[in-house]
């Protein structure tokens, strides 16, 4: 009886249930981040991994194609994580970008940003090609995922990629973010991360804001704002170039 009432409440208040479920996942990942990784891997990256794991469980249980949202209890997650709210929230992050500060990054930051967008994209496309993907939409989506886990789904959504390719694209971006977080302190000497300028170059090339800020925090706290400043432009640039210029180039080549 109790279960019936609970299920009915969750179904009829889908979006509200989603807020509660996602909040719980964020809470758990925050604890994992602090207790198990000592802050090395940021809570947000762990939360996304848990999300992907739940999508796997949901997909197995329902044998559907929409992960956890195929279970009626969690159908509201589909609205919260759907294209509309996702794009809305990502556009909102641009509000925190200060154009005046962007000038301080200078030409080094700009070049690093462009390289940081194009290079991972090329690597992603080549790897996807080697694994048998031949259509321009899938290649572009996986390549965009190698830029950041945000650029991947935004690009895939705009050009109409299938859900399994989107999942691959997100996974690529998340793994990249975690790799950046964990390997930055280890590779700091090789990367020559000593000055604000070097942190900007790093921020532009490494991309993911969560990866860059966590990696730099573990290397030298003073460098965080410089790296993060450049990295914040990464998602915007990727979302601009991914479904446009980069897609056209891939389409022309395939």
């Amino acid at each position: 009886m109790m279960w019936e009432i609970l299920e009915k409440a969750a179904k009829e208040n889908g979006l509200v249930t989603a807020f509660a479920v996602v909040g719980l996942v964020m809470l758990v990942s925050g604890v994992i981040s602090r207790k198990l990784t000592f802050g090395r891997v940021q809570g947000s990256a762990i939360a996304i991994l848990i999300g992907l794991a739940l999508a796997y469980v949901g997909g197995k249980m329902s044998s559907g194609s929409k992960g956890l949202t195929d279970l009626a209890l969690f159908s509201g997650v589909g609205l919260m994580g759907g294209n509309m709210l996702r794009d809305f929230a990502i556009v909102a992050t641009a509000f925190e970008v200060h154009a005046e500060e962007a000038k301080n990054a200078g030409w080094v930051g700009t070049i690093a940003l462009l390289l940081g967008t194009v290079l991972p994209f090329i690597v992603g496309v080549i790897v996807a090609w080697c694994w048998g993907y031949r259509d321009a939409v899938s290649l572009t989506t996986i390549g965009a995922g190698a830029i950041t886990y945000i650029v991947g789904p935004v690009t895939g959504g705009a050009i109409g990629a299938t859900s399994d390719v989107m999942a691959l694209s997100i996974a690529t971006g998340v793994i990249k973010a975690i790799l950046v977080m964990v390997s930055t302190p280890v590779a700091a000497k090789f990367l020559r991360l000593k000055t604000p300028r070097s942190a900007m170059v790093f921020g532009g090339l490494a991309g993911t804001v969560s990866g860059v800020s966590a990696g730099l925090a573990a290397t030298d706290r003073k460098l965080v704002p410089y790296g993060a400043l450049v990295a914040t432009f990464h998602t915007g640039l990727g979302c601009l170039l991914g479904p446009s210029l980069l897609f056209f180039i891939v389409r022309a080549l395939t």
Binding site: V22, G23, M26, A53, A55, G67, R86, S163, D164, M166
Partner: peptide
Amino acid sequence: IPVVVAMAMQQNV
């Protein structure tokens, strides 16, 4: 970030 987590939950993993 929470929205991205919700998005991750509905992918065809």
